[in-house]
Design a protein around this nucleic acid. Structure first.
Lengths: 349, 349
DNA sequence: TTTTGATTTGAAAGCGCTTTCAAATGATAA
DNA sequence: TTATCATTTGAAAGCGCTTTCAAATCAAAA
């Protein structure tokens, strides 16, 4: 029969400090406190300061779930990336998060590991969590996901791929054109046997776009990408090394390699060094992304600079604008730059 | 005077599908539907299936905020990292997120950019969002933050640093011992002039620990770290390059360099190559983290492997266990490994 | 058959806020 | 001074769920 001190007096309850407590202390109604939180300018200055002080004094922290329930918005936004453990998406996520944070939004993040099923699952969970908006990488996915999102009536944006005639708002760049441009450059150097190191193409529209760009350039120059010049592996340095071994041991090895992502190129360069294959003397190597390593490695990597941070930031801005009632113009495709460094040159004679 | 179709009939409301709708369709009470969601085994099989079908049929998605409000738990956890755009923390975040996701938790993430004020702000916001648990990097921070967290009564865990006699649960490793060990190794090679490239020490207890470890080793060998051998810069490759330039142009340049983080080491190695300084011939370089590049770069980097993914995973597991009522043992310090590669050797004669 | 205890169920009371609505107040014009 | 309108305020009704509590049901024991 221990005596519990549970039943605290009404005037100073033991548990959480509520908005009502603040109202009490400040001698105003709960409604007024709420207004101070949401539209301070609509409250008389004197009361506003009283409330502010009461909040300070009590160390009041608003209850997010209660606010979300009552107001039907959570100030949380979701972002699902294929991966978050690399510089590429990391930079984007970082910018996205920072921009959102500055606008007083909190971000929920998840990585799909390039698996559509996981992505759908994450979207589901985020929707349940009550996110106000959502960011997704790429456009190609089950329509069911888009319907789910629409059913919840929240704005969303896809990134990393621009979409001229697409049904979905997109912040990104033209992967196909950029890839075509890079391949054109390789052709202009005199290469005709250009191999492609690609990430897994299934469920990755960015990778597909890039491959399409290469093909377009090939066609333009009256050639065709030979099957044995296309290798597909998960993104990774080791995979890049393996691909180089594979491709260079062919009967007619390529004189240039187009890498769909930078880790593949690093692997290729490292492996080339290990095998004493001169880059670009014997084989040129070019890639996508312009990560910090590109300009440091030897030979310095020729690569397409993609606007990773800008994507995160612009996507966030677009969502924020939409959420605040402005209907922002669909973001224009972002710029990419072909940065020519040392890893590409004329084909061997 | 347009006729609005707003006032929908009760039986099929226009808006959101609620638990009550499901209850109606399944011919049970809302309470039963709720039980199906939370403790299905407590509901008669027949009704349970009826409810399940109704949920399917209506495409019902529970309202997270409402659940959170009523049940006082949100199934969301927070994680604040100093940065999320690099492989190091990225790997940790990824593992954390995956583990949490498997336990049906959603993760809110933010990066403090090594700024205590931002960190506090993020913690505040997350607490408001109603997180059930929190992960923080390192132990050293304003007590106010810890009090805030305690006031909310949620479990938390600090990471990246083990804490024997610390007042806070920690998942990490002994930075000091690992650094001491690495420095010992350098001494054992015959080095006596060992410089330290450190990240900014203020507000970074991991960096401080590592420096302490170096000092300990110095002392043990009867020497003392000279002031001009300690350089402090933000983490980054460019900074590493700059530091190398600085340190090697001194009157008595060091014969070995201890880098508190890998980007610094990469910068040093790249710059050494640019300046024709032999590594390890003229100067040995060693670092912390064992990121994917360490084994690829030339010379291959001698480095301390830190358990980045394990940290994320273990931290998540600890939190999950705590949340489910189990009081898990405080995690033991994780292991680090000194991985000796090519960038270290005997000092020049 | 009745009794007992365990299991399953529903009614109803919130969780902590926002927001509508009408009342009160203040400022301005008549 | 009174009438008019804009501004500030508070009372109260939810938001969509969980959870307590007591009633109903069921199975087993008497």
């Amino acid at each position: 029969m221990a005596i519990s001190s549970e039943s605290a007096s009404k005037s100073s309850p033991a548990g959480r400090v509520t908005l009502d407590d603040v109202a009490h202390l400040a001698q105003v109604s709960p409604a007024t406190v709420s207004r101070c939180l949401n539209r301070p300018e609509s409250v008389n200055l004197e009361k506003r300061t009283r409330v502010k002080q009461a909040i300070q004094a009590l160390g009041y922290v608003p209850h997010g779930a209660a606010r979300a329930l009552a107001s039907n918005q959570s100030r949380m936004v979701g972002a699902v990336f294929p991966a978050i453990d690399n510089t590429l998406f990391g930079a984007s996520l970082d910018a996205f998060q920072r921009t959102m944070s500055d606008a007083d939004y909190t971000v929920i993040v998840a990585s799909s590991t390039y698996d559509p099923a996981r992505e759908k699952q994450h979207v589901r969970r985020m929707l349940q969590s009550g996110i106000d908006a959502l960011m997704l990488v790429g456009l190609a996915r089950d329509d069911e996901i888009y319907e789910l999102i629409r059913a919840h009536g929240i704005p969303y944006v896809t990134v990393w791929r621009s979409a001229d005639h697409q049904p979905h708002p997109a912040v990104g760049f033209d992967n196909c054109a950029a890839a075509e441009h890079l391949t054109d450059y390789l052709f202009s150097l005199g290469h005709e046997r250009i191999a492609v190191f690609s990430g897994i193409l299934a469920d990755n529209d960015r990778a597909q776009d890039r491959l399409a760009g290469v093909r377009k350039s090939y066609a333009k120059h009256g050639h065709k990408l030979a099957d044995q010049y296309l290798i597909e592996r998960p993104f990774g340095v080791e995979q890049g090394r393996e691909m180089l071994r594979l491709i260079m041991s062919q009967d007619a090895p390529p004189t240039a390699i187009f890498c769909g992502a930078e880790p593949l190129a690093y692997g290729a360069i490292f492996e080339a060094a290990a095998q004493n294959i001169a880059v670009p003397g014997q084989v040129s190597i070019a890639a996508f992304d312009d990560t910090w390593l590109a300009a440091q490695i030897s030979p310095k990597l020729t690569t397409v600079r993609t606007p990773n941070m800008e994507i995160g930031e612009e996507a966030a801005k677009y969502l924020i604008a939409t959420l605040s009632g402005v209907q922002p113009p669909l973001p224009r495709p972002l710029e990419t730059d072909l940065i020519i460094r040392e890893s590409t040159g004329r084909p061997p004679a």
